Amino acid sequence: MKVAFVGKGGSGKTTCASLFALRAAATGAPVLALDADINQHLAVALGASEADAAALPTLPAHLGLIKEWLRGDNPRFTPEQMIKTTPPGHGSRLLRVVEDNPVWDATLREVVPGVRLGLAGAFDDADLGVACFHAKTGAVELLLNHLVDGRGEYVVVDMTAGADAFASGLFTRFDLTFLVCEPTQRSVGVYRQYAGYARDFGVRLAVVGNKVSDADDAAYLRDEVGDDLVGVLGRSAHVRAGDRGASRDVAGLEEANVAALDDLRAAVDAVEKDWVRYQADAVAMHRRNADAWAGPALAAQIDPDFVPGRETVTL
């Protein structure tokens, strides 16, 4: 299942994404984590050192390889013609969460046991003033378009903060999107903004309460977001210690917070996988790009009879 963590800056979405990934991996589930935030902190949040995090490969640095591999024998376009919204078709290579392939070998690293991580990468000097961050998250979107995941497998994506998460088609690529919400008016306001955008595109949205101090905080969130609230994470001494360099192993996490993470996972597992809808959403976003700037050449990349799924994986 593909899950995203979004929210306003400072809400703790990266922390929540890392805890979800670590808890799932601790139960033996395969986990692929992707950092699509402009502030690339997920590696450290998972437990990597600052030095190890800085040495990790990035997806955009291997974009040529990614396009070449994913294109496979698809006759509708060349690797050079692929863009971030290009959907798979007959002849495309589809990726699986657990497999060996050249793309994973080049771009993923197991930063902690059971969690492999891929990075959109941070801005460098060449990007300043001439590029937007979506040029980097495009590699993440292209991968997710071609990624076939199954029950009991988790793809966890830390998205960029604020409404900017809706500035590309990446926000449509998830079975469930968790919005991390603090018990404050500002954070609830961000939730309402997200909920409006999500509703317009049929995106499944669930709320994770974070930095909840007491029953009043939890009640406030329930009153404001209603049934969208699926879990509440309290303030955590374990997380604070991890922010100071202590172990981030979820074995030391408070029992109530572990239970909340299990509630999030149960919410994900309850979602019905719909590959027809998933491909249709990818095609719709690709058509928006075609209509906006690229025209018939881009629209011709769409294979109208193709639906991804495990039975269609090309090795």
Rank of each mutant, 00 (worst) to 15 (best):
V98E: 15
A256Q: 15
M82I: 06
V208C: 05
A290M: 03
T172H: 14
A167N: 09
G12T: 03
C16V: 15
A61R: 13
A21Q: 03
D127S: 05
L56S: 12
R288P: 01
D274F: 07
A106H: 13
R310K: 10
G10D: 12
R76D: 06
A237D: 14
K13W: 08
Q193I: 07
V313Q: 13
G309A: 12
F201H: 14
G150F: 07
D214Y: 03
C132R: 02
A267P: 04
A300T: 03
G129E: 09
P30Q: 10
A299Y: 01
N145P: 07
L56D: 13
V271H: 01
F306N: 08
L170D: 02
L179Q: 07
V180L: 10
T107F: 13
A290Q: 01
K211H: 14
E272R: 14
R173T: 04
L46W: 07
A299D: 13
F201M: 11
A280N: 11
T14A: 12
W275S: 14
L46T: 05
K67Y: 13
G47W: 07
V155K: 10
T15Q: 09
G196A: 07
L19I: 04
I83M: 09
A45F: 00
Y220C: 01
R116I: 04
L233R: 05
F133W: 02
A237Q: 12
L176V: 09
E99Y: 08
G138F: 03
G169W: 00
G72L: 12
S213N: 12
S92V: 08
A294L: 15
K67C: 09
L144Q: 08
G72W: 12
A260H: 06
L70T: 09
P57W: 11
V103F: 14
Q279P: 08
W69Y: 15
M159N: 14
S247P: 07
R288V: 13
A292K: 10
Q279M: 10
L46E: 06
A45I: 04
C16W: 03
R151H: 06
H134W: 00
L221S: 06
S213L: 15
L253T: 05
A215I: 03
W275F: 14
N257D: 15
A215F: 00
G91D: 12
A299T: 01
A297Y: 03
F123G: 00
T14H: 04
G72I: 11
D52T: 11
P57N: 10
W104A: 15
R204L: 01
T85D: 09
V188N: 10
N257I: 06
D281K: 00
T312H: 10
D217N: 13
R71D: 05
A21H: 03
L176N: 01
R287A: 04
L22C: 02
V97P: 14
D223S: 11
F174E: 00
S92M: 06
N101L: 11
D291E: 14
L144H: 08
P113F: 00
